[in-house]
Design a binder for these strands. Structure first.
Length: 445
RNA sequence: GCCCCCAUCGUCUAGAGGCCUAGGACGCCACCCUUUCAAGGUGGAGAUCAGGGGUUCGAAUCCCCUUGGGGGCACCA
């Protein structure tokens, strides 16, 4: 493994877990990593953390990769896609393909007596936890298997138990200089020995992240604030394994309106959902970038490249930011209005019936541009004009939408009335007689 | 319960001791433009900088406490 001329100070990484569709928070963290790399001329690595076999799927992995691409976020090193090969000299970039490395490192820890086999069952562990809770103690592993004799271990193994591997935490204070938070200190004496490899042999997050970040020469670990309490554990692991420590930066969380961590239950968290509604990636990126960062000026419209030129980790806030959909809507409108007719027509295409000709779409664009908040809103505005129903098509298309004698303002006006009118329609109103008369009346206005 | 973190208009934020009687944007309210709705323009309401102590000639900015909020405490990531 010849790894030459790698400046780890300029290497950052995003390590999503494919256990769900691309999440807003993952997208924002990816963006901050990407911007940091681009700003400093560094390298951005994508690594797939799929060690949780039960929850990880290739569909989610594809969704995440596609979502990042859609946002315009690209990486310099990452897993192979579509039958290609891994890109980069530190691959493979999928943790499920690096199992031998974790096993080797775990063995190294075992041999050095910095980790040990634990044969406790989940029931036993739970019982201990409950007892600790009753005594108002911090729930943590009590170290029962820490000093098992060879005989005791053999007995467990003979009984068919395959122990998990626990890392022995040294009870000492750990501190690091966080790029966004400054000095952070934590007393590892409060920690229990934690599991790094399950009884079934599969490695766990805190362990794999450290092994890989070190192997991939990551110099700056930029991740969400929810990982801040993993950091002391990981630092201990870095030290035990003899790796050079990276720098850490914990960025603020994106919040629900009630200021709790943004969640699926309370907010729309999947990038796909925003994409489907017709938010432009440019708008989403611009919006996301400002959730926890600002250039320090009053400018607020930035392209990805402009963001990369201005972005600095040191200007990232410590406090979380509420995801304000009104603001996203506003930004989206700004970006929609900045598009040329042709560009907007192209983007609108997926939201209109196939029956609509390119020419028709192009003619609709100037009429709707000023009032489109999301591309998907085009459906509410004019999609019905292209229904196959002959009556609707002829009336709206011929008399209303594209009238020979009327100008664009007239048409826009009519469209709005039609839209408002439609909101009050009941199912019974959808007979062609009723529609016909409505259309006739509207056309005469 | 234990540990860690955070704190400027409703929201996103500017602010790194005097430029702040706290600026911008979103949202909201008026008015203008407009046959309507938008878009655009102009103006307005909206934060005693969570509260209390210090430090200093001077604090939103530094320190401490309180309060409030959040995150984490898995053989998830």
């Amino acid at each position: 493994m010849a790894q030459t001329n790698v400046d780890r100070r300029l290497r950052v990484r995003m390590a999503p877990s494919p256990t769900g569709p691309l999440h807003i928070g993952t997208a924002r963290t990816s963006l901050y990593n990407y911007l940091t790399a681009r700003h400093d001329g560094g390298t951005f690595v994508l690594r797939i953390e799929d060690t949780d076999v039960a929850r990880s799927t290739t569909e989610f992995e594809r969704d995440i990769i596609e979502g990042l691409h859609w946002l315009g976020i690209s990486w310099d090193e990452g897993p192979q896609v579509a039958g290609g090969e891994d890109i980069g000299q530190f691959g493979p970039y999928r943790q499920s393909q690096r199992l031998d490395r974790y096993a080797a490192e775990a063995q190294r820890l075992l041999d050095a007596r910095l980790a040990y086999r634990c044969y406790c069952t989940s029931d036993e562990l739970e019982a201990v936890r409950h007892a600790q809770e009753r005594n108002h103690e911090a729930p943590r592993y009590n170290g029962r298997c820490r000093s098992l004799t060879a005989e005791e271990r053999a007995a467990f193994e003979a009984a068919g138990r395959r122990g998990a591997i626990r890392f022995e935490v040294k009870p000492e204070p750990v501190r690091w200089d966080d790029k966004v938070r400054g000095e952070v200190e934590f007393d590892n004496a409060l920690l229990g020995d934690f599991v790094i490899v399950r009884a079934d042999g599969s490695p766990l997050y805190n362990f794999t992240a450290v092994v890989d970040d070190a192997a991939m020469q990551i110099g700056d670990v930029i991740r969400g604030e929810d990982h801040i309490s993993n950091t002391p554990k990981q630092i201990a692991l870095y030290q035990a394994l003899g790796y050079e420590l990276p720098r850490f930066a914990h960025i603020p969380l994106i919040l629900n309106p009630d200021r709790t961590k943004m969640s699926k239950r309370k907010s729309q968290t999947s990038i796909d959902a925003y994409r489907e509604q017709g938010y432009l990636p440019e708008a989403l990126v611009n919006f996301l970038a400002f959730l926890g960062w600002s250039p320090g000026t009053e400018e607020e419209i930035f392209s990805l490249d402009e963001l990369a030129a201005r972005f600095e980790l040191t200007k990232v806030h410590k406090g979380g930011a509420i995801f304000d959909i009104d603001r996203l809507d506003h930004l989206n409108g700004v970006y929609i209005r900045s598009l040329t007719d042709e560009q907007l027509a192209l983007r609108l295409r997926p939201y209109l019936p196939d029956a609509a000709t390119d020419e028709t779409v192009l003619r609709v664009v100037p009429l709707v541009r000023e009032r489109l908040v999301r591309l998907g809103d085009i459906g509410d505005l004019v999609a019905f004009l292209f229904e196959t129903d002959a009556t609707i098509a002829s009336w709206y298309d011929g008399e209303l939408l594209l009238p020979k004698k009327r100008d664009a303002a007239d048409v826009a006006s009519a469209l709005t009335v039609v839209r408002d009118d439609l909101e009050h329609l009941t199912d019974a109103d959808w007979s062609s007689d009723v529609l016909d008369s409505r259309c006739r009346a509207l056309a005469e206005r």
